[in-house]
Amino acid sequence: MEQVVFFYFALVIAAASVLVVALRNPIYSALALLIMFFHVAGLYVTLHAEFLAAVQIIVYAGAILVLYLFVVMLLNLRQDDRYHRQWPMAGIVGATLVIEAIILTVMKGWTSPVVATGTETTVGATTNAGAIGDVLYSTYLFPFEVASLILLVAMIGAIMLAKKDIGEC
Protein backbone atom coordinates (compact mmCIF):
# COMPACT_ATOMS: atom_id res chain seq x y z
CA MET A 1 0.00 0.00 0.00
CA GLU A 2 2.70 2.44 1.00
CA GLN A 3 4.60 1.53 -2.10
CA VAL A 4 1.60 2.15 -4.27
CA VAL A 5 1.17 5.56 -2.73
CA PHE A 6 4.82 6.30 -3.14
CA PHE A 7 4.85 5.24 -6.74
CA TYR A 8 1.84 7.37 -7.46
CA PHE A 9 3.49 10.40 -5.95
CA ALA A 10 6.83 9.68 -7.53
CA LEU A 11 5.34 9.20 -10.93
CA VAL A 12 3.41 12.41 -10.80
CA ILE A 13 6.37 14.32 -9.41
CA ALA A 14 8.64 13.10 -12.14
CA ALA A 15 6.10 13.72 -14.87
CA ALA A 16 5.30 17.18 -13.59
CA SER A 17 8.99 17.99 -13.38
CA VAL A 18 9.46 17.03 -16.99
CA LEU A 19 6.52 19.18 -17.93
CA VAL A 20 7.95 22.16 -16.04
CA VAL A 21 11.03 22.01 -18.15
CA ALA A 22 9.46 20.96 -21.40
CA LEU A 23 6.37 23.12 -21.68
CA ARG A 24 6.71 26.23 -23.73
CA ASN A 25 4.29 28.46 -21.98
CA PRO A 26 5.60 29.79 -18.66
CA ILE A 27 2.12 29.60 -17.16
CA TYR A 28 1.83 25.93 -17.97
CA SER A 29 5.26 25.36 -16.52
CA ALA A 30 4.22 27.10 -13.35
CA LEU A 31 1.09 25.01 -13.12
CA ALA A 32 3.04 21.83 -13.64
CA LEU A 33 5.26 22.98 -10.84
CA LEU A 34 2.19 23.56 -8.71
CA ILE A 35 1.09 19.99 -9.26
CA MET A 36 4.56 18.87 -8.39
CA PHE A 37 4.53 20.89 -5.18
CA PHE A 38 1.29 19.29 -4.13
CA HIS A 39 2.61 15.84 -4.68
CA VAL A 40 5.81 16.60 -2.90
CA ALA A 41 3.69 17.77 0.00
CA GLY A 42 1.82 14.50 -0.22
CA LEU A 43 5.11 12.66 -0.11
CA TYR A 44 6.01 14.58 3.02
CA VAL A 45 2.78 13.49 4.62
CA THR A 46 3.60 9.87 3.92
CA LEU A 47 6.95 10.53 5.53
CA HIS A 48 5.22 11.90 8.63
CA ALA A 49 6.39 15.44 8.05
CA GLU A 50 3.00 17.10 8.18
CA PHE A 51 4.41 20.42 9.23
CA LEU A 52 6.66 20.57 6.24
CA ALA A 53 3.86 19.45 3.99
CA ALA A 54 1.77 22.39 5.10
CA VAL A 55 4.70 24.77 4.89
CA GLN A 56 5.51 23.44 1.46
CA ILE A 57 2.05 24.34 0.27
CA ILE A 58 1.94 27.67 2.07
CA VAL A 59 5.36 28.88 1.06
CA TYR A 60 5.97 27.23 -2.27
CA ALA A 61 2.50 27.04 -3.70
CA GLY A 62 1.00 29.95 -1.85
CA ALA A 63 3.77 32.47 -2.01
CA ILE A 64 6.59 31.58 -4.36
CA LEU A 65 4.59 30.28 -7.25
CA VAL A 66 1.99 32.98 -6.94
CA LEU A 67 4.80 35.47 -7.23
CA TYR A 68 6.01 33.73 -10.34
CA LEU A 69 2.57 33.79 -11.87
CA PHE A 70 2.21 37.39 -10.85
CA VAL A 71 5.39 38.32 -12.63
CA VAL A 72 4.57 36.28 -15.69
CA MET A 73 1.26 38.05 -15.94
CA LEU A 74 2.71 41.43 -15.12
CA LEU A 75 5.22 41.11 -17.89
CA ASN A 76 2.47 39.57 -20.03
CA LEU A 77 4.62 36.82 -21.37
CA ARG A 78 3.00 34.57 -23.85
CA GLN A 79 4.66 31.89 -25.84
CA ASP A 80 8.26 31.02 -25.53
CA ASP A 81 9.00 28.27 -27.93
CA ARG A 82 12.72 28.53 -28.03
CA TYR A 83 15.25 26.47 -26.27
CA HIS A 84 18.79 27.25 -25.48
CA ARG A 85 21.46 26.04 -27.80
CA GLN A 86 22.94 23.93 -25.11
CA TRP A 87 21.40 20.65 -26.13
CA PRO A 88 24.72 18.86 -26.44
CA MET A 89 25.97 20.12 -23.12
CA ALA A 90 22.73 19.35 -21.37
CA GLY A 91 22.68 15.96 -23.02
CA ILE A 92 26.16 15.15 -21.89
CA VAL A 93 25.59 16.34 -18.36
CA GLY A 94 22.29 14.59 -18.15
CA ALA A 95 23.61 11.35 -19.54
CA THR A 96 26.55 11.42 -17.18
CA LEU A 97 24.34 11.95 -14.20
CA VAL A 98 21.90 9.27 -15.31
CA ILE A 99 24.69 6.80 -15.72
CA GLU A 100 26.01 7.80 -12.35
CA ALA A 101 22.62 7.32 -10.81
CA ILE A 102 22.29 3.90 -12.39
CA ILE A 103 25.69 2.88 -11.16
CA LEU A 104 24.75 4.22 -7.80
CA THR A 105 21.63 2.16 -7.54
CA VAL A 106 22.82 -0.99 -9.22
CA MET A 107 26.30 -1.24 -7.86
CA LYS A 108 25.99 -0.17 -4.31
CA GLY A 109 22.53 1.09 -3.58
CA TRP A 110 21.95 2.36 -0.19
CA THR A 111 23.89 0.50 2.37
CA SER A 112 22.99 0.82 5.96
CA PRO A 113 23.78 4.33 7.06
CA VAL A 114 25.15 5.42 10.33
CA VAL A 115 22.22 6.15 12.54
CA ALA A 116 22.66 9.45 14.21
CA THR A 117 23.27 9.23 17.90
CA GLY A 118 23.67 12.89 18.52
CA THR A 119 21.80 15.17 20.86
CA GLU A 120 19.18 15.86 18.24
CA THR A 121 15.58 15.82 19.25
CA THR A 122 13.94 12.81 17.79
CA VAL A 123 10.59 12.78 16.11
CA GLY A 124 7.83 11.05 17.91
CA ALA A 125 7.85 12.55 21.37
CA THR A 126 5.38 15.20 20.44
CA THR A 127 3.75 16.30 17.24
CA ASN A 128 5.82 16.93 14.18
CA ALA A 129 5.25 20.65 14.26
CA GLY A 130 6.00 20.71 17.95
CA ALA A 131 9.25 18.85 17.50
CA ILE A 132 10.41 21.20 14.79
CA GLY A 133 9.38 24.19 16.81
CA ASP A 134 11.27 22.94 19.82
CA VAL A 135 14.56 22.51 18.03
CA LEU A 136 14.07 25.61 15.97
CA TYR A 137 14.12 27.78 19.05
CA SER A 138 16.73 25.89 20.99
CA THR A 139 19.25 23.94 18.96
CA TYR A 140 18.77 25.85 15.77
CA LEU A 141 18.34 29.30 17.24
CA PHE A 142 21.36 30.66 15.46
CA PRO A 143 20.40 29.55 11.95
CA PHE A 144 16.95 30.82 12.66
CA GLU A 145 18.34 34.28 13.26
CA VAL A 146 20.47 34.07 10.15
CA ALA A 147 17.40 33.07 8.18
CA SER A 148 15.63 36.12 9.50
CA LEU A 149 18.49 38.24 8.22
CA ILE A 150 18.17 36.56 4.85
CA LEU A 151 14.54 37.50 4.74
CA LEU A 152 15.42 41.05 5.73
CA VAL A 153 17.86 41.27 2.88
CA ALA A 154 15.36 39.84 0.47
CA MET A 155 12.69 42.25 1.59
CA ILE A 156 14.72 45.40 1.41
CA GLY A 157 16.53 44.26 -1.67
CA ALA A 158 13.36 43.50 -3.55
CA ILE A 159 11.95 46.87 -2.65
CA MET A 160 15.13 48.63 -3.67
CA LEU A 161 15.31 46.88 -7.00
CA ALA A 162 11.69 47.02 -8.00
CA LYS A 163 10.83 50.47 -6.73
CA LYS A 164 10.00 52.72 -9.64
CA ASP A 165 11.53 55.93 -8.41
CA ILE A 166 14.72 55.70 -6.51
CA GLY A 167 15.96 58.46 -4.32
CA GLU A 168 19.15 59.91 -5.63
CA CYS A 169 21.62 61.77 -3.64
Partner: peptide, 11 residues
Protein backbone atom coordinates in the same frame (compact mmCIF):
# COMPACT_ATOMS: atom_id res chain seq x y z
CA UNK B 1 20.86 24.58 -19.05
CA UNK B 2 18.24 24.22 -21.71
CA UNK B 3 15.71 26.94 -21.33
CA UNK B 4 16.20 30.54 -22.25
CA UNK B 5 13.27 32.08 -20.52
CA UNK B 6 14.61 33.33 -17.24
CA UNK B 7 11.37 32.52 -15.43
CA UNK B 8 11.48 28.91 -16.49
CA UNK B 9 15.10 28.76 -15.50
CA UNK B 10 14.13 29.89 -12.05
CA UNK B 11 11.35 27.33 -11.98
Amino acid sequence: LLRRNIIIILL
